[in-house]
Design a protein around this nucleic acid. Structure first.
Lengths: 333, 333
DNA sequence: TTGTAGGCGTTATCAG
DNA sequence: CTGATAACGCCTACAA
């Protein structure tokens, strides 16, 4: 079942068969049909390795994400994969986890598999320490690297991101306008977009209140009950807060659970804002006001940029998309 | 940067270099070190295509799932990918969507990529009509096919599944023992496991009540508000029910929303049971009693079976895992 | 329009 | 322990 078998059965040379396969050059309609018929008959499929060997491409894109069970990432993967396939590309998926060492290993692995490009999904790939991102810059010397929700301004790296800074900046201002005085900010990591979100919050605060009390800025693992417990502790410590801005929906759900436990009225006594507008936000009670960062648009844009890159067209280093606030029942606006 | 460059620099033949790469045969420690040093120096990486061409394997497994944004499937993918990598295998991911035609296309595509095996994740791959599954049987003539939550008894197909029948059978009995008389069953599809679940429910009912009223068995799209609306309509039509058994957590969440809307007390007036024990089940209020089908175990078992298959060991056609009921606040048990 | 032959980078089988 | 050399299956000049 290789090209020789086909050529023999069809009574032509392998070159002709190859031409037919690739819809290339000029082959007479008659021989073309004959070859096609034979291929159909013996169920021939081109060997991808042999093909790749000569062409050095497999029409395959590597996708890296920290954790495909994270709803945001899972959605992104779904859309990316779909778009890629529309363009005739397949994808290799790597779930790297959160450790730098593993991220580096997986990236090298992808490189060694000779993928045509790599998409890094999620800001988890931007380390706080710039030197730790060097491995990405190095990889970009070989193949294009696409970043979703991260930014590195280096050759052959292309970033698509949601304007997280503006999103938290705006919503914080809305909260302040409502008369909320003590906004608690909950986040899970100081990834690239984590920092953007935090800065948006801080800057809005600075403009109105001038000072920032670091007690109102808290880290928390990405887990409902941990978030609830943390808030319980903060509450019992006597710190007063009348709004919670969470960098992830799951933390906001934890906040709702906390309010239930303490019989605090949402949204009058406590407003809660989530981030990602994920399934969780309509699952909880009351339903969560959440910032929608447009995963689908982010994914589609990334892939279409990539296609342009692969076609040798020029693409900007950074493409930014604005986010929207989806109003539900945990806020007064 | 190929094997010739290395051999030249190291002053040995390519055969020796190849031996070093593969940690094969006997190479003198001295030459080995020399070769290793050169490889390091010029940053040599073996070309996977050339390797694949000779070996006709790429140490790569194809994974197919209908929709990676489905929480259950996303989790499964995460675990499978992790286990595969532990065993030195990479994975190709395909999100096929729900149409048969696409499933067939993707499977062929995977086949043409020369993957070493294919894992079909989720019972969405078992069509109601047996003939429609023939494409899977055909594929199994080429490479091993692993099924998660589906069953086909044919050569080279290996199935790992959760005992969904027993799960719904047991929980229905528990509901009946609690004195619940009118249990509404909500499901999204008559996939393989969909049928198992439904049969478990029906059989438990038959044993106790003898007759089954088909009005109590309803299809519903996998969507919170659609589930809620459907229940609202059923309720308004005057049909009485005091328990809801949902084939998916998301439908159960819709049921909770319905109860809230109508001010029905959970669990006393209405018990609700979900399925999958997903993140949703702890996100809603009250938290959902749900059947845990052990995604992780399912995934781990599948991969370890696959490894045995690839090593030529014998593996049973079917491996079944029991599920557990996770008791939370929407039931009285 | 068609065929021949060389090359892509490895691995494996022989000899030495 | 090491080195030639023949596959592996396809693509693509170049020739006819």
């Amino acid at each position: 079942m290789n090209i020789y078998d086909v050529s023999e059965k069809a009574g032509v040379s392998i070159a002709t068969v190859s031409r037919v396969i690739n819809g290339n050059s000029n082959v007479s309609e008659k021989t073309k049909q004959k070859v096609l018929a034979v291929m159909e008959e013996i169920g021939y499929t081109p060997n991808i390795f042999a093909r790749g060997l000569g062409l050095n491409t497999m029409k395959t894109i590597g996708i890296m994400c920290a954790d495909s069970s994270d709803p945001f990432l899972a959605n992104a993967i779904f859309y990316i994969e779909r778009e890629l396939r529309k363009n005739g590309y397949d994808s290799f998926l790597c779930c790297t986890g959160y450790e730098l060492k593993n991220k580096q290993n997986y990236l090298n692995l992808l490189l060694s598999k000779r993928v045509d490009a790599i998409i890094l999904v999620g800001s988890q790939f931007l380390e706080f320490n710039k030197i730790d991102n060097q491995y990405i810059v190095e990889a970009a010397k070989e193949i294009p690297i696409m970043l979703i929700n991260g930014h590195i301004n280096k050759p052959n790296i292309f970033c698509t991101l949601c304007d997280d800074y503006q999103a938290t900046y705006d919503v914080t201002n809305q909260l302040l306008e409502q008369g909320k005085k003590d906004i608690l900010y909950l986040y899970t990591s100081k990834s690239y977009s984590g920092i953007q979100k935090l800065n948006g919050f801080k800057d809005a605060l600075k403009e109105t209140i001038q000072t920032i009390n670091e007690d109102y800025i808290r880290v928390c693992p990405s887990n409902i009950s941990e978030a609830k417990d943390l808030l319980l502790r903060i509450y019992d410590s006597g710190l007063h807060f009348d709004a919670i801005l969470a960098a992830e929906d799951i933390l906001a759900v934890g906040a709702i659970k906390f309010a239930k436990a303490k019989n605090i009225k949402i949204p009058d006594e406590l407003s809660i804002i989530g981030y990602n507008n994920s399934l969780l936000s309509v699952c909880c009670e009351p339903e969560l006001t959440s910032i929608d960062n447009h995963v689908e648009t982010l994914s589609v844009t990334t892939v279409s940029s990539l296609m342009r890159v692969l076609n040798g067209q020029t693409v900007p280093n950074k493409t930014s998309i604005s986010s929207d606030l989806i109003r539900r029942d945990t806020s007064n606006f």
